[in-house]
Design a protein around this nucleic acid. Structure first.
Length: 329
DNA sequence: TTAAATTCCTGTAAGC
DNA sequence: TGCTTACAGGAATTTA
């Protein structure tokens, strides 16, 4: 299930292939995946718009479009965004297809006049949805090997950006930032945990005012953006904190430890191109590598790597939660 | 106002 | 082998 590191990987991979290109046409084999505006309006409005920037905010993928609007993609649990040749077979559960003009990476393609007026300079982007994608230095920006090279040898060959989502928990939105926030189709999100500006004290203050479990606060996108079940469990384990502790009871020192472990867990996962524990695949359909490094998630009943005691599973905030009863207090 | 529970949805695995 | 059932989870909605 895509969380911050998985979304960051997809965005970093697709950005150089998408920015500068025009969405020639949109098709919606499963129209209800679009939550705003109405599907017919969505199809009409997006045709002919150029992608001028691509970034991440929490678990959302934001494609800045000509004219000030943006295409927002949330992958839900099983959503996949892939760039493929237009003649590639359409996989089952493909809910949206965006036909693109020439390859932006080609010297003869659309990128020769690549507009940099907005979106592409992340630090100057609007603040509310997060101007900066909070990309770490390095990590997914540098691919371990050439990705997407098998797409096509011919730059002029038509390509499509396809959205596939078997469980349909994901969604697509189109509109301006103000419009989407006002319509409440796009939630207000908390700070980016890997943003250098996110201070330990900010996390402490978020935790201090909540009388629910630590796990519930970490999963709350309004408190911290981008953390899901995997990295919540991993970071609490690294910080040696029990997930069912009441958040408001944490000391500054514990909050600082959690702040550090949260950053470490997320940055390492970005470095490893995300966790493919279920259906997650990157933009080229390949597996991530972080699932090999997970300390607790998905390991209930198995021995803790630190003390050897079997890891316990409980249910918190409606989610299965795995932790070590000895190491996490 | 806040927190918890419910709902959506389909692929997978376990049990019979 | 084939059927039923439980489970996975992000986030919006409903309930307490």
């Amino acid at each position: 299930m895509p969380e911050l590191p998985e979304v960051e990987t997809i965005v970093a991979d697709l950005r150089p292939h998408l920015v500068g290109r025009v969405i020639v046409r949109a098709e919606l084999p499963f129209p209800t995946i679009v939550r705003h505006p109405e599907p017919e309006e969505f199809i009409d409005a997006i045709a002919g718009l150029r992608i001028v920037g691509m970034r991440r905010r929490g678990k959302f993928i934001l494609l800045d479009l000509d004219g000030g609007g943006m295409l927002v993609v949330h992958l839900g649990m099983t959503g996949q965004l892939r760039l493929v040749d237009a003649d590639a077979p359409i996989e089952k559960h493909t809910h949206a297809i965006f036909s693109l003009d020439g390859d932006s990476t080609s010297p003869s393609g659309a990128a020769r006049h690549l507009p940099r007026e907005r979106g592409s300079d992340l630090s100057n982007s609007p603040s509310e949805l997060g101007g900066d994608s909070a990309s770490p230095s390095g990590a997914a920006r540098h691919l371990p090997r050439e990705r997407g090279s098998d797409l096509s040898n011919s730059p002029s060959r038509p390509q499509q950006l396809r959205y596939r989502d078997p469980r349909r928990f994901g969604r697509l939105l189109l509109g301006t930032q103000e419009e989407l926030l006002a319509s409440k189709k796009m939630p207000r999100l908390g700070p980016e945990p890997i943003d250098p500006a996110f201070a330990p004290d900010e996390l402490y203050r978020s935790l201090h005012r909540r009388r629910t479990s630590l796990k519930a606060v970490l999963l709350d996108q309004g408190a911290i953006a981008g953390v899901g079940n995997i990295y919540a469990d991993e970071s609490m384990h690294r910080a040696r904190l029990r997930p069912d502790r009441i958040a408001s009871g944490l000391s500054r020192k514990s909050a600082q430890r959690l702040h550090e472990s949260l950053r470490d867990s997320l940055l390492m996962a970005i470095e490893n191109r995300g966790s493919s524990v279920d259906t997650y695949r990157d933009a080229w359909g390949e597996l991530g590598g972080q699932q090999e490094q997970l300390l607790v998630y998905g390991r209930a009943g198995e021995p803790c790597f630190t003390c050897g005691r079997p890891l316990k599973m409980i249910r918190l905030a409606g989610r299965s939660t795995v932790f070590c009863t000895k190491c996490q207090r």
